[in-house]
Write a protein that binds this DNA or RNA. Structure first.
Length: 835
RNA sequence: GGCCCUCUGGCGAAACGGUAAACGCGCUCGACUCAAAAUCGAGUGGGGCAACCCCCCGUCCCGGUUCGAGUCCGGGGAGGGCCACCA
């Protein structure tokens, strides 16, 4: 049988895709006794067709999954669709196509494109989150969390997106220069008083923070962002008695050491004490102020540029450390929802307090002096607040202490005396997850006049989304307009009742989908905990860094809840995270219709073949870097694969060479063997440690170049060539699996008819061939390269020195100078230090 | 304002503290061809020089550690990200 001379991916790729599917090559659980690996890429939201970003994530994950399978692991590499969500609904408002229909169509096209790219997914495990059999478990989790008090109904100010016409979570609000916009649709986000459902993620703040410490195989960038987002700040709470009353103002401060410098206290306008403690003569002004604040946007009120404004309540608070009476104000910049909604103001040591004090003529008192340098002038002559730690002054018994020490001591004393103590606060807020939209998971609650909010009993799940959708985008929950959905009976009293018409945030779907893959058709439980014990946590998770503080925080939270429910064995859902860079257009700008620089994977696969597209994704740069699409580079990848194809054709006569002849190989073909084994080492390391696919592929190119340079004439030379070809095919298979499979079968024609390369063990290298026996050693004089000498790899200093000193150039540069030192690095270099 | 990341040929990128620029793209030249494409081969950081002998310069800038720094340390610049009146 003679090979086709031309590389025609279109004719070979579908054939192997079919063979892999028929053989069940990618089914997880094929090797129950083998060690397991779970490789996961973030599942796509199927809006429209697949784009290059998708092609990149799945190619990265797939290369890894294919490699691990060949390494003998039982690999779980599943895929599904994050099908519920706003874009499908917004599109429906535009053109009237039902989200379910649109989503189904998009999934079909995604599935086809993914298959045409040859991804080794275990398609039997595919999940679609809009399937009631999936989202019923969202509801199930919700009920469990309701029982445990993790899910709750709250009343208060929520973020309302004026574009999506729904409440969105804190994490989904983008803030830029005081402008608050929606991360999905970029519309303005305003505050709206609305009751909503929330998850008590703040109860896990400490655990989520502590867990970051174990995530050593996550990019620092992501753990840092999560750390900032969770935003733990250490401090203390202290009670200030309101003079002449029994009321206490509890303040939170991170600078307890400055408390003797506190010259006034400030409450948030919404603080419950405001109405109680305001003096009658101040009432009118305070009410006017509170009312104005109530109707002002948070951004306008507390944004960076907003001027500091406040009014005095006329009341006085008593500093529990000094007994001093200080005035109590209310001001716009104090937030009711952070800390205790009240602060002690220390204008000398806090810039915000300083500005406020200056504006309203409040006293400024220095109580911390710098440890070194000039002493600060009295407060009234300070030009700005001095916020650094230092040594306490005018602070009663604490004077003379360093700030850190003072904080410890004062915190302990406050606790001992019962008026406070050390504590911590978080930036993280609870996760408000109810959405006033249609295309989401219905929240399984029934409102009864008699029994209030009643959870839907477990055996009545799922509460299905009605097919009939009245999607108008007017902000009222669409489900409220579907009487057949709304009207029901109370599970307790059987009297007429109404269903909750809000749906869940789609981040709920993605918070636990990785576990559903374990037993995707399970009808009794969200997934099988026994399987979770085997497969979780995820070994490698690949996805975009834009999810650093949304999905990736939520799923860490959810996994903790699942652990408490006894469903998963570990707290952290994922060992290692790979955040891949963006695929930009050829012009370096983000791909966008606006720039006309969009390139879609589908047409590229048709034109070049999947293997070329995959190779481009992997060769352009390491996974975490952004890359620009480049037609020239893609041509280059295609040229490489064509060259690979042709060298197999040109060396057909070596396919039946006798491997035992390898022992006799010498000269350039021994060098070829060395390169073969070095390539195995290089590619393996690239897949194993750093995911440096690009350098691995470069090693294959070098091997290929060497094959072109050598024409085998003897049996032993043919054997060495065959060895190189075989290695080339195998090493190429995680990256360009189709062409690799085809060529591997060519070399192994008879033996491998019923086998698949995707199932073969990964090649190993011979260490004795990896190490060179002669090496080129750099010769330096005073650290500058002056020549090089060839020597045996094991040559010692004396031998190399002799060779080096014989070099004319080296002699010229050392002439007339005294040799002071010789640095010898075996196999690498020798450096003569002269002077 | 705080925290973090990045900076290397014309371009994408390589480089355990040890010969900077592997590999690919682009470009130049040659072979094949009537010609072109494709393919194969050679060259390709800058400067000096008759010389592809050799010399000098070269990884954003300045300084340091070291026999030796793209890599480590200190300071600065530019670009990017996250957080931010958070007490």
């Amino acid at each position: 049988m003679s090979m086709n001379e031309r590389y025609e991916p279109q004719s070979i790729e579908p054939r192997w895709q079919k063979r892999w599917t028929e053989a069940g090559t990618f089914a997880a659980g094929r090797h129950p006794d083998a060690e397991e690996r779970y490789v996961l890429e973030m599942f796509p939201y199927p809006s429209g067709a697949m784009h290059m970003g998708h092609a990149r994530v799945y190619t990265i994950g797939d290369a890894l999954a294919r490699y691990l399978r060949m390494r003998g692991y039982d690999v779980l590499h599943p895929i599904g669709f994050d099908a519920l969500g706003l874009p499908a609904e917004n599109a429906a408002i535009k053109d009237g196509k039902h989200p379910a229909v649109r989503t189904r169509e998009n999934i079909v096209s995604f599935r086809e494109e993914m298959k045409s790219l040859g991804y080794s997914f275990d398609w039997e495990r595919e999940i679609v989150t809009s399937d009631p059999e999936y989202y019923r478990w969202n509801q199930w989790f919700f009920l469990k969390m309701l029982e445990k008090g993790i899910a709750y109904r709250r009343e208060g100010k929520a973020n309302w997106c004026t574009g999506c016409l729904t409440v969105i979570a804190n994490e989904q609000v983008l803030e830029d220069d005081g402008e608050r916009t929606c991360e999905r649709c970029s519309s303005a986000v305003v505050e709206k008083s609305i009751p909503e459902w929330a998850f008590r993620i703040t109860a896990y703040a400490d655990s989520l923070l502590a867990g970051l410490g174990q995530l050593t195989a996550w990019p620092d960038r992501v753990t840092t962002m999560q750390r900032n987002w969770i935003g733990r700040s250490e401090g203390a709470e202290v009670d200030f008695l309101v003079a002449g009353t029994a009321e206490k103002i509890k303040v939170f401060t991170t600078r307890l050491d400055t408390i003797f410098g506190s010259t006034y206290a400030v409450l948030a306008p919404e603080h419950p004490l405001v109405s109680k403690i305001t003096r009658p003569e101040r009432l009118a002004e305070v009410r006017a102020f509170t009312e104005r604040m109530r109707t002002t946007e948070a951004a306008a009120r507390t944004g960076e540029g907003a001027p500091k404004e406040g009014v005095s309540t006329g009341a006085e608070a008593v500093n529990p450390f000094s007994g001093e009476r200080i005035p109590v104000w209310i001001a716009n910049f104090v937030l009711a929802e952070y800390g205790t909604g009240a602060v002690m103001s220390v204008p000398a040591h806090d810039q915000r307090d300083f500005d406020f004090a200056r504006k309203y003529g409040l006293p400024i008192r220095v109580v911390v002096q710098p440890e070194a340098g000039d002493r600060l002038p009295p407060g009234d002559r300070l030009e700005s607040a001095v916020t650094a730690d230092g040594i306490l002054v005018d602070s009663g018994p604490y004077s003379g202490l360093a700030s850190a020490e003072a904080r410890r001591k004062m915190g302990a004393d406050a606790k001992a005396k019962g008026f406070g103590g050390a504590t911590a606060r978080w930036h993280l807020r609870d996760w408000g997850f109810s959405r006033q939209r249609y295309w989401g998971t219905p929240i399984p609650i029934i409102y009864c006049d008699e029994h209030g909010a009643v959870p839907v009993p477990y055996d009545l799940l799922p509460v299905k989304l009605p097919e009939q959708a009245i999607i108008t985008g007017t902000g009222e929950p669409p489900l409220a307009k579907v009487p057949e959905f709304v009207n029901t009976t109370c599970p307790k009293c059987r009297k007429p009742a109404r269903r909750e018409t809000e749906t869940m945030d789609t981040f709920v779907d993605s918070a636990w989908y990785y576990a559903r893959y374990l037993s995707p058709r399970d009808e009794k439980q969200p997934f099988d905990p026994v399987l979770a014990k085997r497969w979780l946590p995820i070994d490698v998770y690949v996805g975009g860094p834009e999810h650093a503080v949304m999905h990736l925080l939520y799923f860490r939270f959810w996994n903790r809840v699942m652990k408490e429910l006894g469903l998963v064995p570990v707290e952290e859902p994922c060992q290692r995270l790979v955040t891949q860079g963006i695929v930009n257009g050829a012009d370096g700008r983000k791909m966008s219709k606006r720039w006309g620089n969009v390139v879609a994977p589908g047409p590229m696969v048709k034109r070049y073949g999947a293997d070329t597209v995959r190779l481009f994704m992997l060769f352009a740069a390491p996974p975490e870097k952004d890359i620009d699409w480049s037609d020239e580079q893609v041509d280059g990848m295609h040229r490489f694969l064509s060259r690979v194809w042709r060298i197999f054709h040109a060396r057909e006569e070596t396919f039946r060479a006798d491997p035992t002849a390898l022992a006799r190989v010498e000269g350039p073909f021994l060098e070829l063997r060395r390169r073969t084994h070095r390539a195995i080492k290089k590619v393996t390391e690239g897949l194993q440690d750093d995911l440096k696919f690009n350098t691995g592929i470069a090693a294959l190119m070098e091997l290929l170049n060497e094959l072109y340079a050598l024409e085998p004439k003897t049996d032993s030379e043919r054997a060495a060539t065959r060895e190189a070809l075989l290695a080339l095919a195998m090493l190429l298979s995680p990256f360009a699996p189709h062409v690799a499979e085809e060529l591997w079968h060519e070399v192994n024609a008879s033996a491998a008819r019923d086998l698949l390369l995707a199932d073969q063990p990964w090649p190993s290298f011979d260490p004795s061939l990896v190490a060179a026996d002669t090496v080129t050693i750099a010769v330096q004089v005073n650290g500058k390269l002056r020549g090089e000498v060839k020597a045996a790899a094991e040559a010692g200093e004396a031998e190399v020195r002799g060779l080096a000193e014989a070099e004319d150039k080296v002699r010229a540069h050392m002439a007339g100078k005294t040799l002071r030192k010789v640095v010898f690095v075996p196999r690498r270099l020798i450096n003569f230090v002269v002077g």
